[in-house]
Design a protein around this nucleic acid. Structure first.
Lengths: 153, 153
DNA sequence: TTATTAAAAGACCTTTTTGTCTTTTAATAA
DNA sequence: TTATTAAAAGACAAAAAGGTCTTTTAATAA
């Protein structure tokens, strides 16, 4: 439904929203390490996000990535659109080319409410609001195993 | 979330449930044409489903694929498990390695109810019951454009 | 103005997914 | 028992996704 690239992009952009500003820019390295994502792959993604005006960057000493005021008003759907395109997320769960409430696939009425919820969340919250919610509710933002000891007893 | 392979396998197996029995076996060709799926690719998938005892086959004249009585008691989750493995469907939507209700990703509480609904449907109905429901509710089972004229005005 | 720093760019590689083609095997009907 | 039919098997091939590496460009601090 989402590519790894989109997932990485969302998590990293939310990380930027939480930890960066025009004064404090962040290197790919720091983010890659914190989100636990391959460094050069994230660098590529960030180039694309900059071109898509989702995030901003400056080169040189104390350079790095950050969110401008305009960037902060983007939403998660803009990120997905920029990386995967929206069709990938929007397409029928069973792959049918025609699938709507009058011509539904076998799971249409299970998938549709979920998609509506998801789209609402991804469209109606700005990146900053989304990041704020994550801080408030303490949801996770890293691919790392927070508690690796649980996995290898 | 589901690979094309899984989607093809589900649609095709449901087609078998609707149109085949031990007396009337169906060729890959017929199914591929009706579901609108690449013929040789479906042939490969069907080999795997036969090995996984999800569907049955016999060679030779009037041979083809069909569902045995045991096959009919399988469910959609068995198909997905056989083709993709369950982890692909079960994994965190944001890709987090740890994600549960005590350690949730940012969309965990939106995704979780959906997954429960989906798993219930895919696990608690047999293939036959699922196919019956499709007939009853007239949901679609083909990747074809039912009404191509709508698309090119 | 030069050294340093960090992103930008682009070439390259690997794996997975998707899809194709040819040959072999098995069932059966004539 | 032989021709026919249709799946089984396996080798290929193309495309997409995922990931790496090296060189270039731009900013800035010394």
């Amino acid at each position: 439904m989402l590519s790894n690239a989109s997932k990485y992009a969302i998590l990293s952009t939310l990380y930027l929203a939480q930890h960066s500003n025009e004064q404090r820019k962040i290197s790919v390295k720091e983010i890659a390490e914190n989100i636990d994502v391959p460094n050069p792959f994230l660098a590529k993604l960030f180039q694309q996000l900059v071109r898509g005006k989702i995030i901003s960057s400056t080169k040189g000493p104390h350079g790095g990535f950050y969110l401008s005021e305009r960037n902060k008003k983007k939403n998660v759907l803009d990120i997905i659109d920029n990386i995967d395109g929206l069709n990938k997320l929007n397409g029928c769960f069973m792959g049918l080319h025609e699938c709507d409430s009058t011509n539904p696939c076998p799971v249409h009425f299970i998938v549709e409410p979920f998609k509506n919820n998801l789209f609402t969340k991804f469209r109606d919250l700005t990146i900053i609001e989304f990041a704020q919610e994550i801080s408030d509710f303490n949801t996770l933002l890293t691919l790392k195993n927070v508690n690796p000891s649980f996995k290898t007893p």
